[in-house]
Write a protein that binds this DNA or RNA. Structure first.
Lengths: 104, 104
DNA sequence: CGTGTAAGGAATTCTGACACG
DNA sequence: CGTGTAAGGAATTCTGACACG
């Protein structure tokens, strides 16, 4: 429970497949990286690798772009959203620490 | 609940990445496919694509091979295991159909 | 049977740049 | 600013085959 993210976060998808999955051109995907909206990893040889989370994020980005939202604004939104989620996670951690299942 | 498999089953990983993930050579991975131990999909251009499930399966195969189990025997084991899981799933489905949450 | 390897070709991905607006 | 495209090179993947055992 609460740790089913292992697959969703693993960076293993090539840009070509991400392009198919999202409908975005590779050019756009690379551009959003340049603008720090997304952070793929790299293989030894420098090929980009994305996670399913990245794919979802790219689809959100695409939706916003279609509505005319600039990359800068999208970045702001995305960052805000992340802070919020990180906070939720932390609170949950604190609760578990006091009332949750003991680890030993 | 019970349908978190979407990522695990999606075929999106190239053979090169699968090779890194499993430690198997591409030759071996292709051979296991030839022997029907695994069923990757293909991109438009014919490149193999694997799921995380396939990766796990390959690691099981690797373990068995290390112990000297032949591909034929492994295939038998894997098939048996699948039948078992399919059965569980079906039973669960029947229970839900009678006592589970209504769909309409 | 299971796996390595060299072979040749086709498709992928990468970067930096010019273009348009 | 956001995206297309042509450019040249490097790395990936594919198949069929020969090798060994």
């Amino acid at each position: 429970m609460g740790q089913e993210s292992s697959y969703k976060d693993k960076k293993v998808i090539s840009i070509g497949v991400v392009s198919e999955l999202t409908g975005l051109t590779e050019r756009k995907i690379r551009y959003y990286e340049e603008k720090k909206l997304i952070y793929p990893e790299r293989t030894n040889r420098g090929y980009r690798k994305y996670s399913f989370n990245d794919v979802e994020r790219l689809m959100e980005i695409a939706d916003h772009r279609e509505e005319g939202v600039t990359t800068k604004e999208i970045k702001y939104e995305l960052t805000r959203k992340e802070r919020k989620e990180a906070k939720q996670k932390m609170i949950k951690g604190q609760i578990n620490a006091r009332f949750g299942i003991q680890k030993n």
